[in-house]
Design a protein around this nucleic acid. Sequence first.
RNA 1: GCACGCUUAGCUCAGUUGGUUAGAGCACCUCGUUUACACCGAGGGGGUCCAAGGUUCGAGUCCUUGAGCGUGCACCA
Length: 892
Amino acid sequence: MGNMEPNDIPKAYDPKEWEGKLYRQWEESGFFNPDTCIEKGVTKAGAEAFSIVLPPPNVTGHLHAGHAAMLAVEDSIVRYHRMKGDRTLWVPGTDHAAIATQSKVESIIRKEEGKTRHDFSREEFLDRVGKFAQDSHDRITHQVRKMGSSVDWSREAYTLDEKRSFAVRTAFKRLYDDGLIYQGDRIVNWDPELQTTVSDDEIERKEEKSPFYYLQYGPFVISTSRPETKFGDKYVVMHPEDARYSEYAHGQQISLEWIGGNIAATVIKDESVDPAFGTGVMTITPWHDAVDFDIAERHGLDGEQIIGFDGKLLGIAGSFSGMPILEARKKIIDLLQEKGLVVKIDEDYVHSVATNSRGGGLIEPQIKKQWFIAVNKEFEHHGTTTTLKELMRHPVRPGGEITILPKQFEKVYFHWIDNLRDWCISRQIWYGHRIPVWYRKQSTDNSEQITNKTEDTEVYCGVETPEGEGWKQDPDTLDTWFSSGLWTFSTLGWPDENAKDLIAYHPTSLLETGYDILFFWVARMILMSEYFLNTQPFDTVYLHGLVRDGQGRKMSKSLGNTIDPLDVSEVHGADAMRLSLLSGTTPGNDIRLSDEKILSMRNFTNKLWNLARYVGTMSESVDHSNPEPKSDADKDLLQKLGTIVAGVTRHIDRYELSMAVDELRDFTWGDFADWYVETHKVEKNDTLLRYAFDIIIRLWHPFMPFVTEAIHQTLRLDKSEYLIIARWPEFDTTKRVIADENRFALVKDLIIKIRNIRAIYRIDPAVKLTVSARGASERTIRDNEEVFKRLARINEVKSFDTDIPTHSIPVQSGLLQAFLHLEGIVDLDAERKRLGKELADSERYAASLEAKLGNPSFANRAPEAIVTQTRTLLDETNVKADELRGHLASIS
RNA sequence: GCACGCUUAGCUCAGUUGGUUAGAGCACCUCGUUUACACCGAGGGGGUCCAAGGUUCGAGUCCUUGAGCGUGCACCA
């Protein structure tokens, strides 16, 4: 009698019935919080710590499949460590994503109300953004819960909340006081649409075809795709070694006719000019081009602003002033053509233009006074002289404190650092951390442009608003990555260096994020942590790939191929969604997600559920803590169980989640469901059945928390209140049995071969067959007789001595041999053919092994174990071939 | 241009430090309602591991070159 009636448990697992309820129970239990785990004795106070900070999703909308992948990986690892008994903390949070969020709200306001942010006061506008962010936050945290993430909500953080703001101001002030933050007029990426600077990393280059003009510039021909920037060009640059221009000397003045009339141009020789490009001569526009800016700096040249911050030409353009650049471009060419200065126009020129990847427009390089972090400046740091670049490089070096998975991203990381320029951290948007710098004019002049400070401007940088009259705060806000960079420790109580969490959980154990933000975020966290805490922010960086559709395309709204993790979870369950994102994926490689894959994982969820139904209804509720192996099948299962526990544990420890999941799935579906459950139907070892399933459920829990917890609440195989705090299986090696001579494997193989023969000869499943066996083979079969009969559909096992039964065909599995009685059923010709093919295969294989062994250099150089193995293999193959020959002879 | 990665069954991918006759899921073919599951079970077909060289007793795995694809960075006067 089972302990449950079949009707107690529904046939199909229904995630909707369970998921919401289970998550609520987990959350209310408090076990996501390591303090509760310690209090209730689930975790020892002195246990090893394992901590992750959740890469905070942007409050720009909702979670997509990439977030779901991140949550699946992190939650699996976190649940594993919690079950293992580690003090496990996973800190959740969201990111204000300054530019992205503000531009989103601006576009909504533009669309719905036809207004711009300048129709509001700063406070009114921030209020609107704040409301939007709050809505997004609520939606996102809801989604994080839906995915089953076991984050500690009591420690939730927001990059723009009061604690994080305090950390940001403290960090800014320290860098400022140490001279590593400076304000300077440098060339920056200006987005005229969003009216703000953006960092180099936020630029996305797009290929574009546009006319390329060759213009007569005195004795030279120069080329440009941007004639509208050429008004002020008065320096003409060429390579110093270029023989074509050796008659011109560096510094030489040349009088020539240009857009606005006659000008005096100065010749500059600089090695950055590529003689092979165009005519090898160019003019420079230092105000609107980063390379030109560098040349101008090298030679002490001046530059003039041609294009205003609104994207229109300035006074220097004379009659063109006030025109948007694209309109001006055409008219300037008309004028140059009238003057006869256009040499030729290449209409098919392809070059790349810079755009703001955060939803803005075409980037216009501009010289602007901005705040920068000096990455190449030397400073004293804990007794050594170093630079911020060096601090970023150091922990990632070979043998360093940080391991990046996959390893090849370390090279990409170093390459990025090598090319890094000073980091522009100020933005002209409103949503974000206001720069903690205040200005006060000594004189009475209260100019508009207070940031353009003169000698009599007093500057104050501090964590709090300064005392006294007349202070005005810098209107700019900080790059969102500045606050994100502090994330591993600002969430743990920093700048209080004695904060309990900071001491207990920093450096964090793992940072799991997409490879696309290695530079934006990972590098900056390393910088900040090394600088402020003199330690790495995390030990391991696990970079997951981009989630793509079944054909490998990026998911996008316009393609209509997005898969919403919430929709999938709603229909097929969060477990199926999670498993789809874990299986078949490796760090650094993109993840393909398709409906077929999700369905197959949904099927597996149901398989697990039905195993639970079987265990629940077909076995006695017994104390299964000490299972006794009674049969060959039992021993086989125990052995495999030991292997799978060790394997899954090892794979998770190495962050090989896909391997853990795939191997566990093969074991569960194949070894346990297809074989052990079938043998249990005749052997009925309830203790072992329940023991094994208990372990299987715990092994699955990190990956499929909902269905396993549902099964736990249904069957209660483990004594824990919730599976989340059940002990991670550690296979007791004393229970580990080495199955005798692999007997069950042979029986299994024999069964498969009999089934194969049945299929080949189309034997009706209703017809049961008879087999004969003798000697050791008979003993093995008799020991497994009931299982054998059931699974191979045999009605009788007969013994014989010398004479092989007539009308029978041999079935062979290693040394295990049986004769299948097939009187009147089998076409002997076909059987001869089948056996002949099998014999040919064996002979071919034996020959190749013999050749190998006959090769003296193999015998001499290969390790002994390999040679022995090969010899054994040859012997076995020869025995098999002999048997086959005998069988063939017997039916000839 | 520089760097990195990928190329294994029709499709999507595993394949750990080189070592049994290369695996899985999906798809495909045949059979099937046996007391967990048709979101199932049983059986099967299908691969010169991109190409050419090389190292080695032994290469899907290591080296060189090439091809195709992808990504990052730089340049684009």
